[in-house]
Simulated scan of single mutants.
Amino acid sequence: MIDLGISKLALIGAVALIVIGPEKLPRVARTVGALLGKAQRYVADVKAEVNRSMDLEELKKMKDSVESAARDVESSVQTSASDFEKSWSEATAGLDGTGSNFDALTTPMPEYRHPKKNFRLKQKAVPQWYKARAGVRTRTQSGAARVARFRPRSRPVQ
């Protein structure tokens, strides 16, 4: 950065006062301040973008490493599963399947069905005309709305 001390700032201010003049100096100072603020915001945006891109690259590297680890685990699981299937087939090769335990393992279990309810049919449906005649509420109301509905009307003062 440029090292600006108080003496250098005072010298720059004095030269600007002489060159620009006292009438235009405040407007020029505001313009310079606004431009300096825009430049600082631009530099901060560029820094943030660079940091985001660096973080994105790190995340991509991490993603690649996690994917490769997942592929390794998947291949090891597949090889162990194929080894297990081979050993299982070798172990069960001598069985002829006549035992009762073998039949119990191979027969499928029946699907569970609830004994009395069919949820697709609406049971105990009350017709709307019956609800209206019996005075059953079909729409909910808050307590305040119910009080306001049944509050006796005040008579106009005569």
Rank of each mutant, 00 (worst) to 15 (best):
R133M: 09
T31Q: 01
L4I: 03
S68E: 14
G94L: 04
V46K: 12
I20T: 01
Y112K: 09
M109V: 15
V126G: 02
R139E: 14
S65G: 07
T98D: 07
A104M: 11
A69Y: 07
T107S: 08
T138R: 10
S87A: 15
P127Q: 05
E111M: 04
T106L: 14
T92A: 08
G94I: 03
E23V: 13
K131A: 11
W88N: 11
M62N: 09
A81D: 13
Y42E: 11
R133N: 03
D45W: 04
G33T: 12
K47N: 15
G37H: 06
K124C: 08
R120Q: 14
V19A: 10
E57S: 06
Q40V: 14
V126S: 04
T79V: 13
K38T: 04
N118R: 06
S154C: 02
E111Y: 01
S100L: 06
E85V: 04
I18M: 11
L95C: 14
R151W: 08
R133D: 10
R149A: 15
Y112C: 08
I2Y: 02
G97A: 03
D103S: 12
R151P: 01
F150C: 00
V136E: 06
A91D: 13
E49S: 10
Q78E: 14
K24R: 15
P152G: 06
P26H: 03
G33Y: 11
K24Q: 14
K8H: 01
V77P: 01
R27P: 01
P156A: 05
V32K: 01
Y112G: 02
A91R: 15
P26R: 04
S53K: 14
T79R: 02
R153M: 08
L56M: 10
G97R: 02
D96R: 02
L17G: 03
S76L: 15
V19E: 09
A70G: 01
D3S: 09
R153A: 13
Y112E: 07
D45S: 05
Q123I: 14
R149H: 14
S154E: 08
R155I: 02
R113D: 10
V28F: 02
R133G: 00
M1C: 05
V19P: 01
N51A: 15
S89A: 05
R113Q: 15
W88G: 09
I12W: 10
R146D: 12
A10N: 11
Q158I: 07
D3A: 15
V15R: 13
V15G: 00
A104S: 09
S75N: 05
K47F: 04
T140N: 12
K131M: 12
R71S: 07
Q123M: 12
A39L: 13
S82D: 12
R52C: 00
D45Q: 07
